[in-house]
């Protein structure tokens, strides 16, 4: 089943065309990577999928709903079924870690405070944060912890679809590999579908099932990493040089 279908999407900032008719499909249960050189519009495409940015033409279908023509109620439904982790966590700085994670639970579900506290403790535990970190503010924790807390917040409502924007950038190699393992574990256990933008070669080979490579405004390749050597693209040839 296709979780996300991108069809003929064109994006332009003023006269500058970023995407020229992109097509890709994300299937259920896979970890899908958006790759490409800096400035090719990977993050822009991700932002278009989560309705943060409009695009000029084409269509993006997420969980069976076309995001370019959604009613507000359907859009809210969609927003409750995905989780987004931003590059720098984007935690609410005036709330503690625990309050950040509890926020969607308080707003969207009728749960007792004790239950919310337990769910928060569980989410903290699966992303590898300690219970004592819960009462800290985002300004008091490190960049890696912010990412983990951001992931815990994205997972708060048990989404079916998870968007990750450069999840391992800025993490030390050990934490980055732990993060990869965590993503794989969560996918297997919670049946998540994950779409991520990444530059991290180890994480590309360790976690991704399929990739889309955006280069020169087009998708130059979509598929598994096994056949990537055949792609005629300067980006692919230099980026994957060591592994080909």
């Amino acid at each position: 089943m296709a979780m996300i279908k991108v069809r003929d999407v064109v994006t332009a900032f003023g006269n500058r065309i970023i995407h020229d008719k992109l097509n890709l499909t994300v299937k259920k249960g896979e970890i899908y990577g958006l790759l490409g050189p800096s400035g090719c519009g990977k993050t822009t495409l991700l932002r278009e999928m989560v309705m943060l940015q409009p695009f000029q033409s084409g269509s993006i279908e997420v969980l069976g709903k076309k995001v370019e023509s959604l009613r507000e109620r359907e859009a809210q439904w969609l927003r409750r079924h995905w989780g987004v982790l931003f590059q720098f966590g984007a935690l609410f700085s005036s709330l503690t870690i625990a309050e950040n994670i509890a926020l969607p639970l308080q707003e969207y579900a009728q749960l007792s405070p004790a239950m919310i506290e337990e769910i928060v403790a569980f989410k903290l535990s699966i992303v590898g944060l300690k219970q004592s970190d819960a009462s800290l503010y985002p300004s008091e924790i490190s960049g890696g912890m912010k990412k983990k807390a951001g992931l815990a917040r994205a997972l708060a409502m048990d989404p079916t679809l998870l968007f990750l924007d450069e999840p391992t950038s800025g993490l030390d190699p050990i934490s980055a590999r732990e993060f990869d393992a965590l993503i794989l574990k969560l996918r297997d256990m919670l049946g998540l579908t994950v779409v991520m933008v990444t530059h991290d070669l180890s994480s590309i080979y360790d976690t991704l099932d399929r990739v889309a490579i955006i280069d020169e405004k087009k998708i130059v390749y979509e598929g598994s990493l096994d056949d990537i050597a055949s792609v005629q693209s300067e980006f692919v040839q230099t980026f994957f040089k060591e592994r080909l």
Binding site: A114, E117, E118, A121, F122, S125, I126, Q131, D188, M189, L190, G191
Partner: peptide, 20 residues
């Protein structure tokens, strides 16, 4: 199996939980 795995995951992570 999926449900058992989820239950197992929760059990593992909640063991160290102490109410605030």
């Amino acid at each position: 199996d999926n449900i058992l795995a989820t239950l197992h995951l929760v059990e593992e992570n909640m063991r160290s939980y102490r109410p605030h």
